[in-house]
Simulated scan of single mutants.
Amino acid sequence: MVLRWLVAASAAVVAVLMVLFAYVIVAVRVPAPFVLLTHVVSDYGLYLIPLGLVGFALSLIAFGRKGRPGVRWVASASGLVCLLGVVAAGFPLAAAWGTAVRQEASLSLGEYLSGDTNTAAPVESPGTVYNTVDGQDLKLDVKLPEGAPVRPRPAVVWVHGGGWRNGDRGEAPQWHKWLIDKGYAVFAIDYRMVPPARWRQSPADVKCAVGWVKQQAATYGVDPDRVLLAGGSAGGNLALMGAYADDRVPPSCAVADTSVNAVAAFYPVPDLAEAWRDTGLPERMRTFLADYTGGTPDQVPDRYRAASPATYVRPNLPPTLLMHGDRDHVAPYRGSAELAERLRRVGVENRLLTVPYGEHIYDFTWTGWGTQISRQVFDRFLADHFPAP
């Protein structure tokens, strides 16, 4: 009888977990305390189905034929909850499948189960200095495809995220490798980070890096007239700033040309003031924003506008790819949706990939449904607007 109670208790524990995950799945706006669960749903949601089935199997074992009424009641309630949880866990799967169909992308179960990640330890390479400013050497890593190029390669300048205060150029190594395998030269850059407030300096460093790559094009066998900016989170904000900002944001070094042919941003922050108001993690995001700008939107509104890519939307901007999870608690999804609409209104070619149930940094799980779809959408964007030889 003790064993049956233990089995029933185990089924009940699984049932409680399934209730929590089901709440996260069906809730319109998930409170901050449940963010960890939204990451699980975003990156590993498929595993909730076998978890619920295990809970249901445990409840059947505990129910038995001769179990005590209390045990049988716990077992039956747990079994029902686990089955309902399995149904709820099917929603993200169905949403991913529907998005894949609409985007003409394929999903691989085998790849999903492999569990590969898109993270790396802090970079240890000495790097190449592209600018020295304020007594600080700003570095980048040059990552080139194997073999001598038949003709100059297109270049991708990759900007790391981290809330403008953390991270380094080693971030997102799988994206770097993916681009290199397709024939792109990748220049993964560092930039000045807070403290102090860097709302002016960080985008200036990104522009400097683009100009440096163009100046050094012959050295690395790249085409100076074919440069794309890319990055995620704060790096997405800075990639868009590097592509959009006009002469009000000059480069931090003496370079002549900082223009790019296209820009790709993962879960960016297009409008800093809107992110302050709409973020699902206000304590965390507002700290990032205040440190980056030196104040709140009420205290330094001009800085929030100057550091927002949305401020610079106008005709003839580079083609833009935006990829954003609709459950992002850090950088609000609405920011990308509104930016895409603004770009459309002024005739700028753009594409917005909405990743269903996607949390912030969803692509750090390299084999997840959202990342699988993103790779194929990104590949199509590159083929249309920035093809490699």
Rank of each mutant, 00 (worst) to 15 (best):
S259W: 01
V260C: 04
A262L: 06
A262Q: 05
A262I: 04
V263T: 08
V263W: 02
A264F: 12
A264N: 02
A265C: 01
A265H: 00
A265T: 01
F266G: 11
F266K: 09
F266E: 06
P268I: 09
P268G: 13
P268W: 04
P268R: 05
P268H: 09
V269R: 02
V269N: 05
P270A: 06
D271L: 07
D271V: 00
L272C: 03
L272A: 13
A273V: 11
A273C: 09
A273D: 12
A275F: 05
W276T: 11
W276I: 02
W276G: 01
R277C: 11
R277G: 14
R277E: 15
D278S: 14
T279Q: 04
T279F: 03
L281V: 13
L281P: 04
E283D: 15
E283Q: 14
R284I: 13
R284G: 02
M285E: 08
R286T: 02
R286E: 01
T287N: 07
T287V: 01
T287F: 03
F288T: 03
L289W: 05
A290Q: 06
A290N: 08
A290S: 12
D291R: 15
D291Q: 15
T293A: 10
T293L: 11
G294K: 09
G294A: 01
T296E: 04
P297C: 14
P297W: 04
D298Y: 10
Q299P: 00
Q299F: 02
Q299A: 15
Q299H: 09
V300S: 08
P301V: 09
P301F: 11
P301C: 08
D302H: 11
D302S: 12
D302R: 10
D302T: 12
R303P: 03
R303W: 06
Y304P: 00
R305F: 06
R305T: 13
R305G: 07
A306D: 07
S308F: 06
A310G: 13
A310M: 14
A310Y: 04
